[in-house]
């Protein structure tokens, strides 16, 4: 399986490299622009904040597209034969793509955090310190402070939920693609049909999750307005993991037994 992951990365490194280069260049351009003109620390923070928020959105969209195409491209084009002829079960082939996607996501995250660090700590440490020390910031943080809840562990659990949801998302995408490819021989409108199936799966996913969480476990959902409880989050995470596993097994089974390449 390590070999499969290795070649998935070899296959994408060029595209990734170009993307990273573009991001770095954009970042450099903004930094230069901010240095040239006279801007207040607030303006600088806002500019960088906008940049990093925008980049996050772009990262995410491109990430999901790349993860999707990692699978759909192999199924719809003959170059997929390279992997499909190897003595690996559908589980291994799909599993390697999922692991590659996770690693790729972590890589994106790492680069993003590094850029944040370099930008804010490196260049704009002073304005950042001002911001953190400001009254506005303290007010926001105090809002977030919760009764009887350890901020760090809650943050970790939320992060886990986020991770599980993202992995769950592309397992759902893979399941939709697998189902489409198993029932439709033609490639025309393949993307559209996959999308429709994905929507159905997403609906089913949230319906099941909500039913199980609220009705069956009647989990006490909120600690305070808009903030879910540990129990709530834990149950949701568990359900997501189980559903994700189901999606994965369905996809792998279809890949192994029901699909023509």
């Amino acid at each position: 399986m390590a070999n499969l992951i290795k070649y998935e990365f070899i296959r994408k490194w060029r595209g990734l490299g170009i993307f990273m280069a573009i991001v770095l260049i954009l970042n450099a351009v903004i930094l230069v622009k901010l240095q040239i003109g006279t801007h207040t620390p607030d303006e600088q923070m806002i500019a960088l904040g906008a940049f990093f928020t925008g980049i996050l959105g772009v990262f995410f969209i491109l990430y999901i597209i790349d993860v999707t195409m990692m699978y759909s491209r192999d199924l719809d084009h003959k170059t997929g034969y390279m992997f499909m002829l190897t003595p690996n079960s559908g589980y291994k082939i799909l599993g390697s793509k999922v692991i590659t996607a996770i690693l790729e996501g972590l890589l994106f995250l790492l680069v993003y955090l590094l850029l944040l660090a370099v930008n804010f700590v490196g260049f704009y440490g002073e304005p950042l310190r001002t911001l953190v020390g400001s009254d506005l910031f303290s007010m926001i943080v105090n809002q977030v402070h919760l009764e009887g809840v350890n901020l760090i562990s809650y943050f970790t659990v939320s992060l886990l939920m986020l991770f599980v949801s993202i992995v769950g998302l592309f397992l759902m995408i893979y399941a939709a693609i697998s189902i489409r490819k198993s029932i439709l021989a033609e490639k025309k409108f393949g993307g559209l049909i996959s999308f429709i199936i994905f929507m159905l799966l997403a609906w089913a996913d949230s319906a099941i999750t909500n039913t199980l969480t609220t009705d069956i476990f009647s989990a006490n959902s909120m600690i305070s307005p808009g903030v879910p409880s540990y129990t709530f989050l834990s149950i949701q995470i568990l359900i997501q993991v189980v559903l994700g596993a189901v999606f994965f097994c369905v996809s792998a089974y279809l890949l192994e037994n029901k699909m023509d390449m």
Partner: peptide, 20 residues
């Protein structure tokens, strides 16, 4: 399945090798 792919060498007419 995976077991037989170990023993089988197939050369298709298709252009399947990675172009890059």
């Amino acid at each position: 399945g995976a077991e037989t792919k170990k023993l089988t060498a197939f050369m298709p007419t298709d252009d399947f090798l990675f172009g890059w």
